[in-house]
Design a protein around this nucleic acid. Sequence first.
DNA 1: TAATCAGGTCACGAGGTCAC
DNA 2: GTGACCTCGTGACCTGATTA
Lengths: 485, 485
Amino acid sequence: MNQQCKVCGEPAAGFHFGAFTCEGCKSFFGRSYNNLSSISECKNNGECIINKKNRTACKACRLRKCLLVGMSKSGSRYGRRSNWFKIHCLLQEQQQAQAAASQNGNQKVPALSPNSLNLMRHPSYSSNLFSRPPCSKEDLMMMRLDEYVKHPATASSPSISSPDSHNSDSSIEIGDKRNSILNKQNKLVPNTQQQPLSLNKDLFLPLPFAGFPLMPPPGFLPPPTHFLFSSYHNAFYEQNHHLLQHQVQQDLLKTSNMHLPFSSANLTSMKEEDDENEKEMIKEEHEEQMNKRSLSAATLLESQRKQLTITKIPKISDSSSLRDGKESEDEDIDMNENDEVLTPPRSPRSPRQQPQVENNPIDLSMKSGSSSKSDDINHNYFKVNTNHKSSSVSFLMNGNSDSDSNDQKTNNINRKEKIHCHDLKDGNNEKHFQINHGSVSAEEDDGYMNKGIFDDRSDEDEEYERELKRRKLHITTPLDLTTKV
Amino acid sequence: MNQQCKVCGEPAAGFHFGAFTCEGCKSFFGRSYNNLSSISECKNNGECIINKKNRTACKACRLRKCLLVGMSKSGSRYGRRSNWFKIHCLLQEQQQAQAAASQNGNQKVPALSPNSLNLMRHPSYSSNLFSRPPCSKEDLMMMRLDEYVKHPATASSPSISSPDSHNSDSSIEIGDKRNSILNKQNKLVPNTQQQPLSLNKDLFLPLPFAGFPLMPPPGFLPPPTHFLFSSYHNAFYEQNHHLLQHQVQQDLLKTSNMHLPFSSANLTSMKEEDDENEKEMIKEEHEEQMNKRSLSAATLLESQRKQLTITKIPKISDSSSLRDGKESEDEDIDMNENDEVLTPPRSPRSPRQQPQVENNPIDLSMKSGSSSKSDDINHNYFKVNTNHKSSSVSFLMNGNSDSDSNDQKTNNINRKEKIHCHDLKDGNNEKHFQINHGSVSAEEDDGYMNKGIFDDRSDEDEEYERELKRRKLHITTPLDLTTKV
DNA sequence: TAATCAGGTCACGAGGTCAC
DNA sequence: GTGACCTCGTGACCTGATTA
Ligand SMILES: [Zn+2]
Ligand SMILES: [Zn+2]
Ligand SMILES: [Zn+2]
Ligand SMILES: [Zn+2]
């Protein structure tokens, strides 16, 4: 994995306290979280843009950035990461690379097939990001974030990190004021609100998990087997929330297997739709956060624990239903129904044509199976470390590479095998990932559900928020990265 | 470490603001950086040569020298230095010592074997020096430096300090233009472009990290185990980028052990090839930086964790192949294949003929293993602090000693062990460094990437440059030492 | 067994101090 | 103003705990 620190942009040492961070930011957060008194107020009106070079200049802004990207003491996770998580990261990297490549105006960015993105959108993410009630530290942060959102300049919020992200991500954390500034200063930061999604949209997702508020870190992703891949991708999060949730829910109900429909065609269409609603989403995000609940997450979790998987994703014809009814969204998720029960509340984008989920599992153990149909055929290669019957993906966190090639990443894997993950095009004859062991899925399910993400907020968390406020560390952290993956 | 102050030549107290400096120059820079008004204009046309005796005579020239050697408030680095950095320093010292010894016309200078240098060249370094866009303070400085170059009188500028001071290194930092100038003025500075590498090349590396622009500080190196050593060397950075990366990648793929091929013969050949492309490289370095990734680092990390080590470094016969194909290199890495899979994206040089990786690891934990073949056999001793399974190198910055004996240095290390790092000469029977734990490699990978070195220029930096200009402190600082190692 | 991370350790260096 | 010395925040590295 070539993840970068979400706080300062330096190569990440791992996933710490809920976000990919470098050793420095990890230690800083660990030290500072419980010692706010040591953090002096920002001398720059709290608008410092954190990067690797200046990260030590303003502790207040550094800590704010940490919180903004979702770091939390309560979100830590131990132990080896699941293959899904790793795969997700790989895919994410691919996506980013391709997005960067496609920035030139090329529509072919299929590293992550559009279909998969559409189908895979993870409900828990969107719900966590937007549905959590504003009662804890994160909520407070969120509220502040909303303020930023209200300003057009906000477009460059962290969630929309620039492709170069090394530089831009640091800037992302700031509110609209800062964002506007950043935009001016940093050309790399795309203006989310004003640019059409399409390829440009990809630019928003260059950094894995960058732009947190909008795109939670992979660690929180759910992982119903097949889902994991696509769900972890930024594209999914940002644009396919509704789809993902909807899909996932239905799948869970059916307890059927899912495919990764990697067709770029669908993706493209989805993006366009998203573009239309881009601004609207931004406006609504705050409200969404307030209202979103983890009900869907809990439901998903349960189904996952039952070894489920993802089945088809029904098409959602009524966009209005998805976006409307903020109030109802919080509680109205009905897991029992296949339909739009899982639709994320207030999702700005309405899913339109849902690809049909198929029963072609993705075989991580190198098995090839039939795939689903897709418009485009793009082959994505993943290297998977296969040990005996179980396949594992080696997850290396070596900050060095900004590598564009996925291949390089795969090299890190032991006993790697090449897996073909391509857009679903050839119907049933294509290769695909397939997960054969249930143990992983079981584990993943827990992560997937992440229901506890926000439910577990402790009094300490809330108190911590208050303390942060007292210390003028107005941080808006949308996500609670506490969840394990 | 027997580093000397890059500004005045006095024994260095440490790495301050991006350069090895004494306490005095550190404090001076710290005081002066934010108080330019206190610095009066040079009365000697800005041509003062700074040394430990006259460093207080002209503040303007002292500050210029500071900037010239890469000092920057934004380039400061915190925290402990990585083992790789330390090792690099040790190797560098050896190399210098040997180079000095070999100056007598003896081809045997194997402190740092030529091969290792060729193979290890670090991409990030060169790219940093030359590829950075002229938009920041450093850029301005660079431009000014050029002006100096055009004037013969300028030769005596600090950057081109006299032979007695270790100043020569400071001069190195500049781009090709500057280098050419330096070459003319300073006999110690070899002309990379025009001279064959061979022994002369060694002269370029006399001071550790000296001549930054050309040879970035070790801190910035990546550190896949095996690589680390060689990669930190100046020679490597300057001329073996392509080789290093390519080599490393392959090694990782094979998960085989690596050697440090310290053969001067190979180095020589490599240098010649490099010379041909020197200018081109410089031009391309910028692009390289942008594209280089840690894929190889990740791979290395993994291999390291598996106890890997350095194998041999194959010779590269085709220089053209190494430098050509920038574009293709970026994306065409195939991890599945042992060949050029690991080639760093956009690496200016395309690896073509991959040397065969060998199983002679370098044992940092004092293990001795077989080494690769090399022409010369020189034993370099490093003391490594070994805790349990992990090994650490103690990095002592005691400006006092010019001690020639490595033993003194090693004494400072806790639980230190002596490691033999000698030129790869005896084939498989030589001693070598070997890294057994993966933790280190992971950390190092981050340092390796360090792509952000120049990316983070802040507005303040640029403003500072302007102020410097206003005050006629025409300093050209090519490197941004902010990066960590 | 291997991978991964929270925490702890302590090498380092930016800043500050103060005798010169 | 200088620079030896000190303080303490930083972050590279290690270790044990946790999960795959
Ligand atoms: Zn960081
Ligand atoms: Zn600040
Ligand atoms: Zn000095
Ligand atoms: Zn002067």
